[in-house]
């Protein structure tokens, strides 16, 4: 059984984001990179499947810059068998990333039985890659899954929908699943795991190697800038009982015209 897990490396959640001087991207020099938290659920699910099917292999894939390989190393330290990295700028669009992932899977020469990913990456929050990848591979996909049961090639997954309701899907492998929090509890990479990961193979490709070119870009970023700073809140003195009525209508008026929330 060939399991692929797509992981993205994203800035640590505590990072203070600053756009570059020309606004073309964000400053990356001092960023601490971590594995996208939703991808940890995907890695864990793959490892749980492997525990029950010792012959299964888990390959982690990532498209991004080579400077840090934190996410892939972490996944291998958790227990993935090998990894492939497609070297690319960190501001690639979802379509190109999906195409690169597809190319990387083909490069391994293994036909995928299960492809897992996080439901979204917490940096650009696009929520697109798993679905585009499924479409490109002509495979079924379910996203935002919180439950997973596999027997043979029959799969039952649960996904959360608005209002807390659950949808249950039955489908067959191969397929693409995008994982949500609640699916499992990701394990820590143990220290012996970290040591072992050093010796695990990591293939490296260029975008050209996996058949992606600049013309594949569907989305170009035009500018990165921080949202305007929030103006300080307004205070109203309501100690004078005689003026309270007037104050209330003033506040309601501002909520309508300025805050535009009613």
């Amino acid at each position: 059984m060939n399991i692929f897990v797509c992981v993205k490396q994203v800035p640590d959640t505590e990072t203070k984001i600053t756009p570059t001087g020309d606004g073309s991207f964000i400053e990356t020099a001092s960023i601490k990179w971590i594995m996208n938290p939703y991808d940890e659920f995907a890695v864990e699910q793959a490892l749980l499947v492997k525990q029950l099917n010792p012959a299964a292999t888990v390959t982690v894939l990532r498209v991004g810059s080579v400077k840090d390989t934190e996410a892939l190393r972490t996944a291998m330290a958790m227990g993935a068998d090998d990894a492939a990295l497609v070297e690319a700028a960190d501001n690639l669009d979802s379509y190109s990333i999906a195409k690169a992932l597809k190319g990387a899977i083909q490069k391994t020469g293994k036909s995928p039985d299960l492809i897992l990913a996080g439901k979204q990456a917490i940096d650009d929050d696009a929520l697109q890659v798993p679905q585009i990848l499924a479409q490109m591979l002509n495979l079924p996909s379910v996203s935002v899954i919180v439950g997973f049961e596999l027997s043979g090639s029959a799969l039952k997954v649960r996904r959360e929908v608005e209002g807390g309701a659950l949808e249950v899907y039955e489908l067959a492998t191969p397929c693409v699943l995008a994982c949500n929090k609640g699916l499992n509890t990701p394990r820590y990479a143990s220290l012996p795991g970290i040591m072992k990961a050093k010796k695990k193979p990591m293939a490296q490709y260029s975008l050209a190697d996996v058949g992606v070119s600049e013309s594949d870009r569907r989305v170009k970023y035009s500018q990165f800038k921080l949202p305007p700073e929030k103006p300080p809140g307004k205070k109203f003195d309501a100690t004078d009982a005689g003026k309270q009525r007037e104050l209330v209508s003033q506040v309601v008026g501002l909520l309508r015209t300025e805050a535009k929330i009613i």
Binding site: R73, T74, Y188, A189, L191, I194, K198
Partner: peptide, 10 residues
């Protein structure tokens, strides 16, 4: 070293 960084992170 990269391993020491990973050990520290863990």
């Amino acid at each position: 070293s990269p391993e020491q960084n990973e050990i520290r992170e863990l």
